[in-house]
C-alpha cells in the first residue's frame, strides 16, 4: 500500500473525489483512474468501457474496473460524449495498474459543459482531500 507521498500524481491533470483523473489540455479530454485508485484496487484484471458516441452526464458511471477481489465503477468527471476508448485495455487490463496516466487511459470525451471542469481538484487540492480520507 502506497503512502500518500509515494503516489504518482502528475501536476498536469485534474482529479475527482472518486479518484479519476482528466487531462484538460487537448481538444478532447482524456480520463482514467489515478495511482491511488489503482493501488487500492490491486491488479486490474478486467476493464469495461462505454460505446463510442455515448453521451453521459457528470457523475454517470462510464465503466467498471475489476481486480481479482473487487469491482469498482468509474464516473464521468464532467458531462460529455465519448469520442474514443482505449481498446488496448481489452487484452491488457493491467495497463491501468502499471501505467495509469499513459498507456492505461480509459476514454476520451468531448465535454458538453466545460464549466464543470471547475469542480475538479488540482494536485494540491486532491492531496489535501486524500489526507482527509486516509
Amino acid at each position: 500500500m502506497k503512502e500518500i507521498l509515494e503516489l504518482n500524481l502528475p501536476q498536469n491533470v485534474l482529479y475527482t473525489k472518486d479518484h479519476e483523473w482528466m487531462d484538460t489540455t487537448g481538444n478532447t479530454m482524456r480520463i482514467g483512474i489515478n495511482d491511488y485508485a489503482q493501488d487500492q484496487l490491486g491488479e486490474i484484471v478486467y476493464v469495461e468501457l462505454p460505446q463510442i458516441g455515448a453521451c453521459l452526464n457528470k457523475g454517470d458511471v462510464f465503466g467498471t474496473v475489476e481486480s481479482v477481489k473487487a469491482v469498482s465503477e468509474v464516473f464521468m468527471p464532467v458531462s460529455g460524449e465519448v469520442i474514443q476508448v482505449n481498446t488496448d485495455l481489452e487484452n491488457a487490463p493491467e495497463l491501468v495498474s502499471s501505467s495509469p496516466y499513459e498507456k492505461g487511459w480509459m476514454i476520451e470525451i468531448k465535454a458538453s459543459n466545460p464549466d464543470e471542469v471547475k469542480t475538479m481538484m488540482d494536485r494540491e487540492a486532491y492531496l489535501k482531500f486524500l489526507e482527509g480520507i486516509k
Binding site: G42, E43, V45, S67, V68, K69, E94, S97
Partner: peptide
C-alpha cells in the same frame, strides 16, 4: 496481506 506489489494475478 491482501497482495504484494507483484499483484494478485502474478
Amino acid at each position: 496481506p491482501l497482495w504484494y506489489p507483484a499483484g494478485t494475478r502474478t
